[in-house]
Simulated assay, not measured.
Amino acid sequence: MLRSRVWRVAVSVAVVGLLFAGGMLAGPYQTQIAVLAAIYVIMASSLNLVLGYSGLLSLGHQAYFGLGAYVSAIASTALGVPMVLAVVVSAVVALVVAWLIGRVTLRLRAAFFVIATFAVAEIFRQVALNWVELTGGPMGYSEIPPIGMFGYELVRPKEVFPVVFAVALFIVIAIARLASSGLGYSMRGLAENENLARAVGIDTSRNATIAFSLSGAMAAVAGSLYAHTVGFVSPEVFGFAIMINTLLMVIAGGMGTVLGPVIGAVLFTQLPEMLRFSDEWRLVIYGLVLVLLVRFMPRGLWGTALHVMRQRALAAEAPAGDEGEADAAEKLDRKGARHAQS
Rank of each mutant, 00 (worst) to 15 (best):
L271G: 00
G253F: 00
Q270W: 15
I251R: 06
V250F: 04
G256D: 06
A252Y: 11
V258P: 10
E273V: 02
I244D: 13
G253N: 02
T246Y: 08
G260E: 09
I244A: 14
M249S: 03
T257K: 12
M249R: 03
L259E: 07
N245W: 14
G254W: 12
A252F: 13
T246G: 11
G254C: 11
L275G: 07
R276F: 06
M249H: 05
N245A: 14
V258W: 10
M249N: 04
E273I: 02
G260S: 08
F268H: 05
L259R: 06
V266S: 05
L267N: 11
V262Y: 01
R276P: 05
G260I: 08
L275R: 08
M255V: 14
M274K: 11
E280R: 12
L271K: 00
V262E: 00
A265H: 02
P272M: 08
M249K: 03
L259H: 04
W281Y: 15
P272L: 06
L248Q: 14
I244L: 15
F277Y: 09
G253S: 02
W281M: 13
D279S: 12
V250A: 06
W281A: 13
M249Q: 06
F277Q: 09
A252S: 15
L259P: 04
I251D: 07
W281R: 11
R276Q: 10
T269V: 04
W281N: 13
N245Q: 15
V262N: 01
I244R: 13
T269I: 03
P261W: 02
A265R: 00
G254R: 13
D279Q: 14
F277I: 09
A265K: 02
A265T: 03
Q270D: 12
M255R: 15
Q270C: 14
R276A: 08
G260F: 03
F268S: 07
R276N: 09
F277N: 08
M274P: 08
M274I: 11
E280H: 09
N245P: 12
F277A: 10
L247K: 02
L259Q: 05
V266F: 10
V266K: 05
Q270H: 15
L271W: 01
G254F: 10
